[in-house]
Design a protein around this nucleic acid. Sequence first.
DNA 1: CAAACATAATTGATATATCAATATAAAGTA
DNA 2: TACTTTATATTGATATATCAATTATGTTTG
Lengths: 145, 145
Amino acid sequence: MNNKNPTATVLYLIEQAIKEYRKISQRNISKIVKDITVDQCLVLIILNKNDKISQNELANLVFKDNASITRMIELMVKKDYLNRTIHKGDRRKFNLEITEKGKKTLELINPIAKLNRETALNGLSLEEINLLEKTLNKIITNCKI
Amino acid sequence: MNNKNPTATVLYLIEQAIKEYRKISQRNISKIVKDITVDQCLVLIILNKNDKISQNELANLVFKDNASITRMIELMVKKDYLNRTIHKGDRRKFNLEITEKGKKTLELINPIAKLNRETALNGLSLEEINLLEKTLNKIITNCKI
DNA sequence: CAAACATAATTGATATATCAATATAAAGTA
DNA sequence: TACTTTATATTGATATATCAATTATGTTTG
C-alpha cells in the first residue's frame, strides 16, 4: 500500500519550507525596498560582514554558482548597489564595494531579515532548532560524499 | 559578539540541504537518462501516481507555480515524455498523459529516485526524520500565516 | 625562461521561479 | 439570458541555477 507521493517525503518538505520562507521574505522586503531580490539582499548582507572577498568566496558563502554571482553582481552594479573595481594584487579578481545606496538599503533590510527569520522560526524551541541543524548537516554530508 | 553570517542560521542550512540533494539527484539521473531534469522526473512520477489531474493540481503537488508548470509541460511534450489533449468536460483544462517513452523513463528513474532518497537520509533514525518533518511543518505553517 | 597547470571570472545554452497581465471558459446571480 | 465573478492556463518580463566551454591571469616546475 505504498501510494505516498514522493513529495510526501521529508526531502520535499525541505524544498517546500525553503520556498515558503523565500516567499514571505521577498514579500516583506518588497514592501520596503522596491527593486531588490532576496538573493541580492543576501549578497549585500554578506559583503557587508565580509570585507574584501572575491566573487568566488562570495559564491561559496551564499551557496551559489560562480556564474550566478557574476550575473547578480552585474545587475547590482547596474542598479547602483555595488561598485566593482579591478583587484590590484591579482588582476583576475575584482574588489566589490557597497555603494551609498547599498548601505542605506542595508539599514532598511537588516531589520526585515531579522523579522523574517523570527517569523519562520516562531514557536520553535532552541532544542528543536539545534536538532534541525544537526539533521540537516547530516543530510548535507550524505549528499556531498 | 554576534558576527555570525545569516547563512549560518538554520534557514540557510535548509537551502543548502535542498541544493545538495538536488545536485546529487540530477547527477545520478543524468548517468542513466540524458535529456531529463530532476523537476521533469518529479512531474513524471507525480503524473504516474495521480491519474487525470489538471496542470493546476499538478502544480500544487510539486510546489510549483502554474507558469512554471506550463513551460515544463511544453518542454516535456516537445521531448515526447507527455501528450497533452484538450479536456472534454472543461475546455479550460488539458489531459496530461505519459507517453511510452515517458513510461520507459519512469522505470529507469524510479530506482534512482529511491536511491537518492536513501543516500540523502542515510544514517538518520526514524525518530530524527519524524522530528525533522515536524519542525519543517512548523516553519511552513509560520511562513504561510 | 617556457611549458604546463591552476584559478577567477565570464559567456552561452537551457531550465526553472515569480509576478503581473491577459485570454478563455465556466459558474453564479440578478 | 445578460452580467459578474471565478477558475485554468498562457505569456511577458526579469531573476536565478547549472553545466560546459572559454578567456585571462597566476603559479609551478622542468
